[in-house]
Design a protein around this nucleic acid. Structure first.
Length: 310
DNA sequence: AATAGTGACAACCGCCGCTTG
DNA sequence: GCAAGCGGCGGTTGTCACTAT
């Protein structure tokens, strides 16, 4: 036996509120207050459910509400509080005068979540994606870790997709390698770049001139075969930078397949680019100079996962 | 110009816990 | 102590405007 509904569904209006309805509700509440929501629509002459009236009032009509854009400070507060309270929107909104739980929730779901993802941070745990993967790798035995990692990637699929689609970083490996072959001197530090920097300055990665080591911190990479790959004269990865400083630990090796960039040849075999020569060059550079340090991981995603994502 | 896709926001739904009789 | 009712909450869906194709 369920609960008795708070109003008779057949006799109530639903959907968008009209200005007239807003006026009726506001006027009534100004005179009588907000006690007994069940009685308010009846007394105010509204064909609405009491619950609907309450929502309309608390989320929109209340005079103390702010209706404009969220400020940077407000966003920062939301992110901080969300890292502590999770989806306790009411709790969070109480710290933001003039904002309702619905406002905060909507803003989080439409903007902040993606913003965090764009920075390589899992919006649920507020940890860098690479940390989560590394945790999985270090806490579980390889078979379970691989399984869980696949599940995790499934969970992060939207975020990863967002990164790949919205913030693509086309790393022109050919130009980079050519440049490095000329230099004959590779410093692993030079290929480490902080994710935020990378997001801000993607051209650093596509430039024929390698990025500035001054910008280097550390990073892990997710590599998925780009669908433009076969058509490009140069081999390209679609790379997304994850992680923060300190990520470059051996434990952050790929838990999907156990492959690191040392196994680029395998990746080559999988992808079968027409320009395999670049892989030879890549391996040469890698072997000679440790271009990708062990901590810099190419996530060699299983084909079915890639298919899912792409 | 038409259509599809996306983002932002508003509103609804169902569950839960507290209050009240 | 118990059940009904209410208000609050978080998740989900609907709607509209704007943008891209």
């Amino acid at each position: 036996m369920g609960r008795i509904p708070c109003c008779e569904k057949d006799n109530v209006k639903r959907g968008q509120w009209t200005p007239e309805e807003d006026h009726k509700l506001s006027s009534y509440i100004a005179q009588h207050g907000t006690r007994h929501w069940r009685l308010i629509p009846k007394n105010a002459g509204l064909q609405r459910c009491g619950k609907s009236c309450r929502l309309r009032w608390t989320n929109y009509l209340r005079p103390d509400l702010k209706h404009g854009q969220f400020t940077d400070a407000e966003e920062e507060t939301i992110v901080k509080l969300h890292s502590v309270f999770g989806n306790r929107w009411s709790l969070i909104s109480h710290q933001l005068p003039g904002r309702t739980d619905n406002d905060v929730k909507n803003h989080w779901n439409t903007k902040l979540r993606k913003k965090l993802s764009g920075r390589g941070i899992d919006p649920v745990t507020h940890k860098p994606f690479s940390h989560l993967m590394a945790e999985i790798a270090t806490t579980l035995a390889p078979p379970q870790a691989a399984h869980l990692a696949e599940a995790a990637i499934g969970c992060f699929k939207d975020e990863i997709l967002h990164l790949l689609n919205k913030k693509p970083i086309n790393f022109n490996i050919a130009n980079y390698i050519n440049h490095k072959l000329e230099e004959k001197e590779i410093n692993a530090e030079k290929i480490k770049i902080g994710p935020s920097k990378a997001m801000q300055e993607p051209e650093m990665l596509s430039s024929t001139i390698p990025w500035d080591s001054a910008a280097a911190t550390s990073a892990s990479f997710v590599a998925a075969p780009c669908n433009i790959l076969p058509t490009m004269p140069e081999f390209q990865f679609s790379l997304s930078c994850f992680g923060n400083e300190g990520d470059a630990s051996p434990s952050s090796q790929s838990v999907c397949t156990g492959s690191t960039v040392d196994q680029l040849g395998q990746l080559q075999g999988k992808l079968e680019p027409e320009n395999g020569g670049y892989f030879e060059a890549a391996n040469e550079v890698i072997n000679a100079s440790n271009i990708f340090s062990p901590g810099c991981v190419l996530w060699d995603l299983p084909d079915d996962l890639v298919t899912l994502m792409v």
